[in-house]
C-alpha cells in the first residue's frame, strides 16, 4: 500500500471517481482506498515518534558484535586445545 495522493471533492462518491481518474486512469493501480481527510488521525508528536534518548539498541545495526565474536572465537579455540 502506497500513498497515491489527494483529491478535492464535495463528497466520498465523487472523491472515489476522481481518485480513479488521478491514480488509476493509466492502469497504475489495482485497488484504491479513499478516506475523507477528516477521518485521518495525524500523529506527528516528536516525543512519540523521535524520542530524544538513544534508541540505537532497538535497531538491528545497534549491536557491535565484532569484539564479542572475537572473544567467543578465541575461547572456542582454547577449549579445543584442552
Amino acid at each position: 500500500m502506497r500513498h497515491a495522493g489527494n483529491v478535492t471533492a464535495p463528497d466520498i462518491e465523487l472523491a472515489t471517481h476522481y481518485a480513479r481518474e488521478f491514480y488509476s486512469r493509466r492502469q497504475e493501480s489495482v485497488r484504491l482506498w479513499v478516506v475523507p481527510r477528516a477521518e485521518i488521525t495525524d500523529l506527528s508528536d516528536p516525543d512519540l515518534l523521535q524520542p530524544p534518548l538513544d534508541r540505537t539498541f532497538k535497531k538491528p545495526g545497534g549491536y557491535v558484535m565484532r569484539d564479542k565474536l572475537d572473544v567467543a572465537k578465541k575461547r572456542a579455540e582454547a577449549d579445543k586445545k584442552k
Binding site: V7, T8, L14, Y18, E21, F22, R25
Partner: peptide, 11 residues
C-alpha cells in the same frame, strides 16, 4: 467547474 472534474470529464 473544478480541477478534478476537469480531468474526469476530459477523460
Amino acid at each position: 467547474p473544478l480541477l478534478e472534474e476537469d480531468v474526469a470529464f476530459s477523460s
